[in-house]
Amino acid sequence: MKSLTAKALALLAIDTLLVLAFAAIGRRSHEESSALVGVLVTAWPFLAGIAVGWLISITTFGAVPGTVRHGIPVWLSAVVVGMYLRDLTGRGIAASFVVVALVVLGAFLLGWRALAGWLNRWEGPGHA
């Protein structure tokens, strides 16, 4: 596998920041500390999930997951692996939380890709 380029690292950083935001928002909505350590404790299963999703996308599509199509494995892995690791470590996986994670992480992890794709088409060749 080729080494990650600066662009790929930037895209991975976006996914990472959005998962951290998801964890911080969740902690705040449950009146838990939003200190970095607490956010990381909440986020790590989902961060592991995006890592798995990136590997799946790169090996399946041969490209970094910068599009919505290539980002779907990242989103689904974030949720599935994240929930599995939460359950494995005794953190629990209520059905309502699974739904919230699917919706919010879908909006976050696929939303920025959709916006980027739209902007690339809008600002493509022939547009000043």
Rank of each mutant, 00 (worst) to 15 (best):
residue 2 K to S: 08
residue 2 K to I: 02
residue 4 L to P: 00
residue 4 L to S: 03
residue 6 A to V: 03
residue 7 K to F: 02
residue 10 A to G: 09
residue 11 L to C: 09
residue 12 L to C: 10
residue 17 L to C: 05
residue 17 L to D: 09
residue 18 L to E: 08
residue 18 L to C: 14
residue 20 L to R: 07
residue 21 A to K: 07
residue 23 A to F: 05
residue 25 I to W: 05
residue 25 I to N: 01
residue 25 I to A: 03
residue 25 I to S: 04
residue 26 G to I: 02
residue 26 G to T: 02
residue 26 G to C: 00
residue 26 G to E: 01
residue 27 R to W: 11
residue 27 R to Q: 09
residue 30 H to R: 00
residue 32 E to S: 01
residue 33 S to R: 02
residue 33 S to M: 01
residue 33 S to Q: 08
residue 33 S to P: 04
residue 34 S to N: 10
residue 35 A to C: 05
residue 36 L to A: 07
residue 37 V to A: 06
residue 37 V to R: 02
residue 40 L to I: 00
residue 42 T to H: 04
residue 43 A to L: 06
residue 43 A to S: 08
residue 45 P to Y: 00
residue 45 P to V: 11
residue 46 F to G: 00
residue 46 F to W: 12
residue 47 L to M: 15
residue 49 G to D: 06
residue 53 G to D: 02
residue 58 I to F: 09
residue 59 T to A: 15
residue 60 T to M: 00
residue 61 F to A: 06
residue 62 G to C: 14
residue 63 A to Q: 02
residue 64 V to R: 12
residue 64 V to E: 01
residue 65 P to Y: 00
residue 66 G to W: 00
residue 66 G to K: 04
residue 67 T to S: 13
residue 68 V to Q: 03
residue 68 V to E: 15
residue 68 V to G: 08
residue 69 R to N: 04
residue 71 G to S: 13
residue 71 G to I: 01
residue 73 P to R: 00
residue 74 V to T: 14
residue 76 L to R: 10
residue 76 L to T: 04
residue 76 L to E: 09
residue 79 V to W: 08
residue 80 V to H: 05
residue 81 V to G: 02
residue 82 G to L: 03
residue 82 G to H: 10
residue 84 Y to V: 12
residue 84 Y to C: 07
residue 85 L to M: 08
residue 87 D to P: 05
residue 90 G to N: 07
residue 91 R to F: 01
residue 91 R to C: 13
residue 93 I to W: 07
residue 93 I to Y: 09
residue 93 I to E: 05
residue 94 A to R: 12
residue 96 S to I: 02
residue 98 V to K: 15
residue 99 V to Y: 15
residue 100 V to G: 11
residue 100 V to E: 13
residue 100 V to F: 05
residue 101 A to M: 06
residue 101 A to S: 09
residue 104 V to H: 15
residue 104 V to C: 13
residue 104 V to K: 13
residue 104 V to Y: 11
residue 104 V to F: 11
residue 105 L to A: 08
residue 105 L to M: 11
residue 107 A to D: 15
residue 108 F to K: 04
residue 108 F to L: 14
residue 109 L to T: 13
residue 110 L to Y: 15
residue 112 W to G: 07
residue 113 R to Q: 07
residue 113 R to E: 10
residue 114 A to I: 03
residue 115 L to E: 13
residue 121 R to T: 04
residue 121 R to Y: 15
residue 122 W to L: 03
residue 123 E to S: 15
residue 125 P to E: 08
residue 128 A to K: 14
